[in-house]
Simulated assay, not measured.
Amino acid sequence: MDTLSVASWNINSVRFRMDIVEKFLREAQPDVLCLQETKVVNQDFPHDPLRRLGYTHIAINGQRMHHGVAVVSKVPLAEDDRLDWQANGEARHIGVRLANGLRIENVYIPAGGDVPDREVNPKFGQKLDFIERMTTWSAGLAGIPTLLVGDFNIAPLESDVWSHKQLLDVVSHTPIEVEALGRLQAANDWVDLGRQFIPAPERLFTWWSYRAKDWAASDRGRRLDHMWASRDVAAKATAHRVHEDCRNWLKPSDHIPIVTEFAF
């Protein structure tokens, strides 16, 4: 394996949006696609259309109607792990290893509800606890080539949101979440690949609400989807692409796919 491209996409129901998954795979041709919010139990996951496109290696951690993550790949996968960082059985993580030794960890961090106060809103506390458990896990990854991808449900930088001032009290951009994500990043000295290739303060969004009549015209986006790499893996990254055009496709997800290319 000389080159490798890895995509990540919160698909918001893989069966409902299978047409655009297939379209993306035909056009972008990533070697590996990590999906979040698949919303399907394992036995009902749509294997066949993916296999017909050459994605014959599939690792899934599904849940009916909610959450769910999957890794579909043209290259062999091994050692699939499912970690429960929320300690409640929700399907929010799957990790795999490639033949070259690279670990790919695919995660769907909880959204956290509407009120940024764990006393008033238990979902917010669960989100912070999830990130804290991930932070402890990250601290044990020293020396392991790892790529951490997924929907983190946090936009950490001012240029990761359409209005820093207006979103400071909105879950996904509050200081307490940004600080928690910073501790997670520091725990393994993760490199934020999106910002390695598209440095702040350049605009960089991966999510736009369904509520906008014209998402592109209003452009009230947030960067909720991320790819982080251990230092050794980040050094091999050659390109990072954000596929905004997918937000215009038929029956789109509110998230778009991001892709990083590597030379090993």
Rank of each mutant, 00 (worst) to 15 (best):
D2A: 06
S8C: 07
N10D: 12
V14H: 05
R15N: 14
R17E: 04
D19C: 03
F24K: 02
Q29R: 14
D31F: 00
C34E: 06
Q36C: 06
T38P: 15
N42P: 01
L53M: 05
G68V: 03
V72H: 01
K74W: 00
P76I: 04
R82F: 05
A87M: 10
G89A: 09
H93E: 07
G95H: 01
G95E: 14
L98V: 02
Y108L: 13
I109P: 06
D114H: 11
P116Q: 14
E119Y: 03
N121P: 03
P122Y: 05
F124Y: 14
Q126T: 08
D129H: 12
E132S: 04
E132K: 06
R133N: 11
R133K: 09
T135Y: 07
G140K: 12
L141H: 10
T146D: 02
D151P: 09
D151C: 08
I154V: 15
I154H: 06
P156Y: 07
L157R: 14
W162P: 00
K165C: 03
K165N: 10
L167K: 10
L168T: 15
V170D: 14
T174F: 07
V178A: 05
L181Q: 05
A187H: 12
D189C: 10
D192K: 06
L193G: 01
G194N: 08
I198N: 14
P199G: 11
A200P: 02
P201I: 11
F205W: 08
A212N: 15
A212S: 15
K213G: 15
K213V: 08
M227C: 01
H240E: 04
R247E: 12
N248R: 15
L250D: 15
D254R: 02
I256H: 09
I256Y: 08
P257Y: 04
V259F: 02
T260R: 01
F264K: 00
F264Y: 09
